[in-house]
């Protein structure tokens, strides 16, 4: 029983730790896709955030400034994507592909110039994202260890759950959200009602980059202590997948990310103990996602104007 509770604690800890960056990315993806702009550049924006987050945290010694700057770096690439797709009517997939090359290309080059290595210098404990409620639980007892594993987790994790609530509220309970969803469904209708579709979408894509950047910073400031070229390998795409999985709703994306994080947690536990091949275990999240899709989710309704450039006649 003790063992089981211990294991469960570790799985839950890993679930939360792995879900967090995905969730930031997924919330970002929601903003962009729901407003009608396909953003496969999340991956590149996360990479930019991952690098900037650690570097700024390293130089300022303040993880929060680093975290915020990670978001801003993502927002910068979000803005590039917005200029291309929203203002200039570029193909959204092509522009996103460009972002995925530019983001990592630029930051890894910067790393090389700044540190003479593609990896940044590891953060010290005080420079990392702080853990909340650490030391609050008595880790000598089974229950305390469990609580410590689950609740004494990074501040960014608590923050992302709050962010899910906020995004949900913004999407479904505010004027901005109503308009943003309308822009993704019927931009012409919005235009006829005096809503500035270009401005709305521009803002949404920038927000999308900002959130993705936070997600990237999470990876390097919680799961690891430094930025490496392989810090962000596919998390951006998984975040997009979680959004499609969650039918383009923040609460759905939350489920998708948790499923992914849980499978990754399972991987951590199984990988340590059982004799099953590591690589097969690593496959679990992806296989499970496909199975869940087939069995429970099925078709995902894409916002009607998603992917279609909106070009205003003059």
């Amino acid at each position: 029983m003790t063992n089981f509770i211990n294991t469960l604690g570790i799985i839950l800890f890993a679930t939360l730790a792995y879900s967090t960056p995905l969730l930031y990315g997924a919330l970002g993806s929601c903003f962009s896709e729901v407003s009608g702009v396909v953003n496969i550049g999340i991956e590149g924006m996360m990479t930019a955030g991952a690098f900037t987050g650690t570097v700024i945290a390293y130089f300022t010694g303040n993880p929060w400034i680093g975290f915020l700057c990670g978001g801003l770096a993502g927002a910068f690439f979000g803005m590039l994507h917005a200029i291309a797709t929203v203002n200039l009517g570029a193909d959204q997939t092509i522009a996103g592909t460009a972002i995925n090359m530019l983001g990592p290309g630029i930051v890894i080059m910067l790393a090389k110039v700044m540190f003479n290595s593609t990896d940044t210098i590891p953060l010290s404990a005080t420079q990392k994202m702080p853990k909340l409620f650490s030391g609050l639980f008595d880790t000598t007892t089974t229950f305390g260890r469990f609580m410590d594993n689950v609740f004494a987790t990074y501040a960014s994790t608590y923050l992302v759950f709050i962010a899910v609530l906020i995004v949900w509220f913004v999407f479904y309970k505010t004027r901005f959200g109503l308009r943003l969803r309308a822009c993704g469904e019927h931009p012409q209708a919005c235009e006829t009602l005096g809503i500035n579709v270009i401005a709305m979408r521009f803002a949404c894509v920038c927000i999308s980059g900002f959130l993705a950047g936070l997600g990237g910073a999470c990876v390097t400031m919680t799961l690891s202590t430094q930025f490496k070229p392989i810090s962000i390998v596919g998390q951006g795409f998984i975040a997009i997948a979680a959004v499609i999985f969650g039918k383009f709703r923040p609460q759905g994306a939350l489920l998708g990310c948790l499923l992914f994080g849980f499978c990754s947690g399972l991987k951590v536990v199984l990988g340590g103990s059982s004799g099953v091949n590591m690589h097969l275990i690593s496959m679990i999240p992806y296989v499970v996602t496909v199975i869940v899709l087939v069995l429970f989710v099925g078709k995902s309704r894409v916002p009607a104007a998603n992917g279609k450039p909106y070009i205003k006649a003059k």
Binding site: R179, R181, C190, L193, I195
Partner: peptide
């Protein structure tokens, strides 16, 4: 110029929503 998955009310007030 109607947003299909929105309700009648949402469509009518869109752009001048009471808050």
């Amino acid at each position: 110029m109607l947003v299909q998955p929105f309700t009648v009310t949402e469509n009518i007030v869109l752009g001048t929503e009471p808050t």
